[in-house]
């Protein structure tokens, strides 16, 4: 059975708060490249990074990341 794809609402949550990628990167303590690649689904973040992103955006982690069937 193929692994389901991880989707995310990172960009939507970020723009709701009127944050740039650089702002979010600064809040989370990662490079902008990391934010880019997670938003575009190129990179699957670790649990720790997903939780840090959720905390920085004030969202539950399952509201930011979900599995696509």
């Amino acid at each position: 059975m193929a692994d389901p794809k991880l989707a995310n609402g990172l960009k939507a949550a970020r723009t709701r708060l009127d944050l740039t990628q650089a702002d979010l990167a600064e809040r989370v303590g990662v490079s902008r490249k990391t934010i880019n690649t997670v938003e575009n689904g190129v990179f699957t973040p670790s649990t720790v990074l997903a939780l840090r992103l959720a905390r920085a955006l004030g969202e539950p982690v399952e509201g930011l990341f979900w599995l696509e069937d």
Binding site: G29, V30, S31, K33, T34, T37, F43, P45, S46, L49
Partner: peptide, 11 residues
């Protein structure tokens, strides 16, 4: 250095 070697770079 830590930022330049963040999670994506380490992967």
């Amino acid at each position: 250095r830590e930022l330049a070697n963040d999670e994506v770079t380490r992967a």
